[in-house]
Write a protein that binds this DNA or RNA. Sequence first.
DNA 1: GAGTGGTCTAGACCACAGT
DNA 2: CTGTGGTCTAGACCACTCG
Lengths: 254, 254
Amino acid sequence: MDKNKKHESGKIDKESVIPIYYQLAKILKDKIFSGEFKPEEKLPPENNIAGEYGISRMTVRRAIAELIDAGMVYAEKGSGTFVARPCLENVVFELKNFQEEIRERGLKPRTRLLEVKIVKSNQDLSERLQVPLNTRCLFFRLLISAEREPLIYENKYVVYKKQNPILEKELKDPSLSNLALLHADSMPIRSKRVLLASVTDKEESSILSVKLNTPVFVIEQTLYDTDKKTVGWGKSICRGDRFKLSSDVGWPFD
Amino acid sequence: MDKNKKHESGKIDKESVIPIYYQLAKILKDKIFSGEFKPEEKLPPENNIAGEYGISRMTVRRAIAELIDAGMVYAEKGSGTFVARPCLENVVFELKNFQEEIRERGLKPRTRLLEVKIVKSNQDLSERLQVPLNTRCLFFRLLISAEREPLIYENKYVVYKKQNPILEKELKDPSLSNLALLHADSMPIRSKRVLLASVTDKEESSILSVKLNTPVFVIEQTLYDTDKKTVGWGKSICRGDRFKLSSDVGWPFD
DNA sequence: GAGTGGTCTAGACCACAGT
DNA sequence: CTGTGGTCTAGACCACTCG
């Protein structure tokens, strides 16, 4: 008996190396895809499914949990488990770490540190970082390029606590969270970002080597530590002709 | 004894209405936040935790599953469960259904159907929809406004199967998935989108009542059914001065 | 071989829905 | 009331990792 054989559809192979809950989840997904269970219809009770396949109810629940995670069904206490309507309108756009993003295209990202200095926070920065006026902060101006082509221009601020020297570490991973880790005295655990559509101004155009008013994504990022205290803020200008966000939502294709 | 009392931190109240796994998850999160368990450190084995709190190992696993979901720990078979490093760089931008998005701002969205007609697919559309040349498609041109201000201009195509009349239904929910549901003969279950930064051309400027070269988000959407067949394609132009995407990632603040 | 997480069982009690 | 999903237990066996 080949323990790795694909289970027959609709049957569970208890000897398989594939977990039972996974096999059952697959069976249920197939039944939903095929239309045997239609949106808003009730699945059989967990106990019935357990009986039908000769498995424990806890295992059935584990399988159904997979479907719930996938957004294919929802459970209602006291009444049953129902097939969901596919929700395709709540969109989620993913954007990877820029360095990785660039590497994945087979390019070598290169970061140039245009400027680093200690600044005292003005009104605007104090508000963004939620610190008193004139707080000492580290300021970074960075340019990320690939194949000599400038791609992203970044301005970042972190509250200056640790007096670590400015090292190559910043260039290997110039993400705000890494800069905060190195220079602020706390562990950043949460990050909020806002993404805007804009066009380059004079300074940005010149640094990114593009024409004035070129479309760009502007991403503003705020970093927080375990006490919800702000530890960093940054603004990235990404060339719109070199980046796009993508999104893939809905029920999983197998 | 008040069964709803908050559990003492570090202790589990088995009589509480709050599930044990949830209480334990909270205790473990607190220990990670407080630094008692630091990134890359190993949590106590599940059996030890179970023993320490006098609960079942399965319940401990349920609690740890919560932490794994939250991205706070990761499990390695055969060796242990470890505290993760907060990952703040893989960004996820959320964008709600436009209608909801607008309603949430307290505005009343209004959709105007600028044009509907049956078209035969040309080279370009055939490629996007993965159908033969000259396939009959329904074409929609829509303008979504709020408070008389135009916000989004959309061009959408769905393969024309059902001969449903064009009704008010399209205007209540002019999302591509709804249009496909009404007019293509299949249930869309998956949606891919690409988001680009761009500026308005002459036509878009005039329809959106903005100046030429105003920053906009362009969202291209492709819809698929259970057989992975393409059932619709659309392009939305969203005024960049009225929309922004936001993102909030990392460990949850309680 | 000892320790670990992954899976699974066969029960149990509960709160909640609908009747 | 009955039927449902939500939680929990006290075991069990496995495959994996590491010394």
